[in-house]
Design a protein around this nucleic acid. Sequence first.
DNA 1: CGGCCGGTTGAGTACAATCAATTCTGGTGG
DNA 2: CCACCAGAATTGATTGTACTCAACCGGCCG
Lengths: 254, 254
Amino acid sequence: MLGTLSATNGSGPAIRALDPWQASDGRMRQLLAEEERVRLAAVATVVRFKKGEVIYREGDVADAVFNIISGVVTPFRKGADGAEHMVAFLLADDLFGLAAERRYTNSVKAITPVVAYRLPVAALRGGLLQDAQFEFHIICKLCQELRQVQRHAFLLSQRRAATRLAMFLRQLEQLEFARGDDTAEIYVPMDRSDVAEYVGMTLPAVSRAFAALTARGVIAFRNRGHVKVLDRAAFDKLSGDDVEPRSRRPRRPH
Amino acid sequence: MLGTLSATNGSGPAIRALDPWQASDGRMRQLLAEEERVRLAAVATVVRFKKGEVIYREGDVADAVFNIISGVVTPFRKGADGAEHMVAFLLADDLFGLAAERRYTNSVKAITPVVAYRLPVAALRGGLLQDAQFEFHIICKLCQELRQVQRHAFLLSQRRAATRLAMFLRQLEQLEFARGDDTAEIYVPMDRSDVAEYVGMTLPAVSRAFAALTARGVIAFRNRGHVKVLDRAAFDKLSGDDVEPRSRRPRRPH
DNA sequence: CGGCCGGTTGAGTACAATCAATTCTGGTGG
DNA sequence: CCACCAGAATTGATTGTACTCAACCGGCCG
């Protein structure tokens, strides 16, 4: 289930990602060797954050990178109109602390209780970033994040609300798969307003779009946070990662 | 000017980015040492693409990474409705060829004539990825790209067309600055439909929004592709990267 | 029991999408 | 040098979708 403990918990910082240039079954593997994790643990401290707590703010001096042990964390930015936009949802074995010019580029908050390793940048620069093997793993993870953000941007470029939500659900589903979790139903750990801020719509619009998908029999809610895909074909068509869009889907007569 | 040759042309592949954890003046520096560039040049071939040419397609086997020498390149994806969405605009000294599971994750095309280095992945894995210094530079560049894509996603989360365009122009402007080019006016090397696909609107909407900004005296066009910011305050407010949005901007009585 | 928070539903409006006509621009050949 | 053409860009009229504001529901906790 999303947001559970790291699969390889207890040994120290962990990173899971796909090797960009290695074919595999789509499951993310633990990249860090035991020895690397021990070395990282030596410079790391474990930190905890309450649900809703802001971990750092955009513009703060970036003196550390974080590695999530458990919980869900989201980077966010404030829009011109004051509305918050969520950049990503980060889970166990993910990294955060992206900086530019020695400043964090996003604010970050915990949307569940969070436990994480805190890795001072100074310590990393000191020695670990001389380790080619380790650095290669960081590169893999960054590529992973890059793809993730690109998918998010692609989602945001869609105009229909139902499409955005379907793509959002699909992302969650693929993430569960990549993490090796149960895929029978999709677990949505964040509340509606978090979803709204992620998919770039208002809360009522999210609600309506979910309702529409449910009414059309594409998905069904078991609980607040548990969705099941009923009509896989329709779902795939909406979320669009499939092939052959060659003919424009005819508009349904109102 | 955007799209010109690499500042350090001729020595081999080049990467420019900001070091995430180093304060600086905001100008991107050449990261690769002369020696690194020579080693890369040894495994690289120079390739050329015509304007509009597709360099590779999403899903192709990813056997190479590219480093732009000159021209503008854009990764793109096809939406559920067949519309293309542009993920980024890449210029000299940028990298492309992002992959997952040995497959490219985006299609890429040249929107101007392009010259680039082609670096076979096999060669990179063979030796260069054992070089910690080099890998650190790749990490810096990936962080840079990550920030860029996050900014793009943020742009796409905005609802007002004028805001999106202002943010888009601001990105171009900041890019020019970071590259050390003239900042007096903003150079827009892509046509309206490219802009539309990048900002997630239709071509007419882009046209109207530009017209609106012009009418309000915020910007002025000298040419097709040359914009000047006239009202910096209004421009900053729209593009929103500034502070204090504390009070909601009052709606103008229709 | 009552307030509160997260969520849904409803009516009206605003904004961009759409489809289509028209103008502008740059390039080409006479 | 100009007429012409084709593609790019603008403008216009209409429609649709999601935003806005607001009322309403249902569980949870005091």
